[in-house]
């Protein structure tokens, strides 16, 4: 049972003083799965929330910046996301998907909401995906390697898409636009936009599945 195994791990952390963790407890937290960290966050372990920030803070900030196009708004989105995690980690349910998916989904929706509420959509800046900045060393090498492999796979897959398909997908996913709005934005027929989204995402799916095999 999921909860039982997590509780066993948490008990070890508790023994060592979870709210003011010792070095041993910190190492233990570093090795935990994201889902286990959320259980600790629900029990008000700030160190677990800090570990989630260390793992995802940069990605969450990058998504927020990509969607809002504004550093200050992106920072506010990050703060909003972590407040939400702190307040609602107890209701996270592993059956609904991976913790990372949950975190990134919250981020995307919060960022789109923030952009809409500030009416800054028209000023959204493009951050080309090929602007790669070196990634700092992470304490858990395997985790970082895994993320880099995934990043490279997704980038390779996106690079194979015709630019108009990629553009349509990014306007939908990061811009929060409907198909009709994308058609208006690009000055293209609605049918063309539908086709681009379909062909683009299906090709991505096939490529990513092939990478995974």
């Amino acid at each position: 049972m999921y909860t039982t195994s997590v509780n066993c791990r948490c008990a070890r952390i508790e023994d060592q003083g979870a709210r003011k963790p010792t070095d041993t407890a910190i190492v233990e937290i570093e090795r935990m799965r994201d889902e286990d960290l959320l259980v600790l966050v629900a029990q008000r372990h700030e160190s677990a929330l800090g570990m989630i920030y260390d793992r995802y803070g940069r990605l969450i900030y990058s998504i927020a910046l990509r969607i809002t196009g504004d550093r200050q708004t992106a920072e506010e989105v990050v703060q909003d996301v972590f407040q939400s995690v702190w307040q609602t980690a107890g209701s996270y349910h592993p059956e609904l998907g991976a913790a990372s998916t949950w975190l990134l989904s919250i981020t995307r929706h919060r960022a789109i909401d923030a952009t809409r509420s500030k009416r800054e959509r028209a000023r959204t800046r493009e951050y080309p995906l090929d602007q790669i900045r070196p990634v700092a060393e992470d304490t858990l090498v395997e985790r970082e390697v895994e993320r880099r492999v995934l990043r490279d796979e997704v980038r390779s897959a996106l690079d194979t898409l015709p630019s108009n398909q990629r553009q349509a997908i990014e306007l939908a996913y990061y811009g929060g636009l409907t198909r009709a709005e994308i058609a208006d934005t690009l000055g293209e027929p609605l049918g063309t936009v539908k086709t681009r989204l379909r062909l683009g995402l299906l090709k991505l799916r096939d490529l990513l599945q092939a990478f995974g095999e």
Binding site: L59, S62, V78, Y127, Q131, R133, L150
Partner: peptide, 23 residues
């Protein structure tokens, strides 16, 4: 597939004090 899209984004280093502020 859609949920993997953010992993392709360029990394943008958040401000150094954002961790403390967010937490």
């Amino acid at each position: 597939t859609a949920q993997r899209l953010p992993y392709a984004l360029a990394d943008h280093e958040p401000p150094a004090d954002l961790r403390r502020r967010a937490l």
